[in-house]
Simulated scan of single mutants.
Amino acid sequence: MVDSYLDRLPTSLELPCSDDIPVDNEDQNFLPNFLLFLLESIWAKRLDWFFGADMAIYHTTGVNPRVPVVPDGFLSLGVERRKASGSRSSYVVWEENGIVPTFVLEVVSQTYGEEYDKKMEIYAKLGVLYYVVYNPNFWQRDQHQPLEVYKLIDGFYQLQIGEPFWMQKVGLGIGRGINSDGGLQREVLYWYNKQSSRYQTAEELLTEYRQQFGELPGS
Rank of each mutant, 00 (worst) to 15 (best):
M1A: 14
L6P: 04
D7Y: 06
L9R: 06
T11C: 03
P16N: 03
P16E: 00
C17I: 05
S18C: 04
D20M: 09
D20E: 15
D20V: 00
I21G: 00
P22A: 12
V23W: 05
Q28G: 05
N29L: 14
N29D: 03
F30H: 02
F34H: 13
F34A: 10
F37C: 05
S41F: 07
I42F: 11
W43M: 10
W43C: 10
A44N: 05
K45Q: 13
L47Y: 04
W49D: 03
F50C: 11
F51V: 14
F51E: 02
D54I: 01
D54G: 07
M55R: 08
I57D: 06
I57G: 06
I57Q: 06
Y58G: 12
Y58E: 14
Y58V: 15
Y58W: 12
H59E: 15
T60S: 05
T61W: 05
V63L: 10
R66P: 01
V67T: 11
V69E: 06
V69T: 12
G73C: 11
S76K: 10
L77T: 10
L77E: 15
R81S: 12
R81M: 01
R82S: 08
R82V: 01
K83C: 09
A84H: 12
A84E: 15
S85Y: 14
G86H: 06
R88D: 07
R88H: 11
S90Q: 15
Y91R: 00
V92H: 07
V93H: 08
W94L: 08
E96I: 00
N97I: 10
V100R: 07
P101V: 05
E106Y: 07
V108K: 01
T111P: 00
G113E: 08
E114F: 04
E115S: 07
Y116M: 02
K119S: 07
M120C: 02
M120A: 08
M120E: 08
E121S: 02
E121N: 06
E121P: 01
K125P: 01
L126C: 15
G127I: 00
V128Q: 07
V128W: 07
L129D: 03
L129W: 03
Y131C: 04
Y131R: 09
Y134I: 09
Y134H: 14
N135H: 12
N135E: 14
N135G: 02
Q140H: 08
D142H: 12
Q145K: 14
Q145W: 10
P146I: 11
K151F: 13
K151M: 13
L152F: 01
D154P: 02
Q158L: 13
L159T: 00
I161Y: 07
G162N: 05
P164I: 09
W166R: 10
M167W: 09
M167L: 15
K169V: 06
K169H: 14
V170R: 04
G173V: 04
I174A: 00
R176T: 05
G177C: 00
D181M: 13
D181F: 12
G183Q: 03
L184H: 02
E187V: 10
V188H: 03
L189C: 12
Y190H: 11
Y190S: 03
W191S: 03
K194G: 11
S196H: 12
S197F: 10
S197L: 12
A202W: 15
E203R: 14
E204I: 06
L205I: 14
L206D: 12
L206H: 13
G214I: 12
L216P: 08
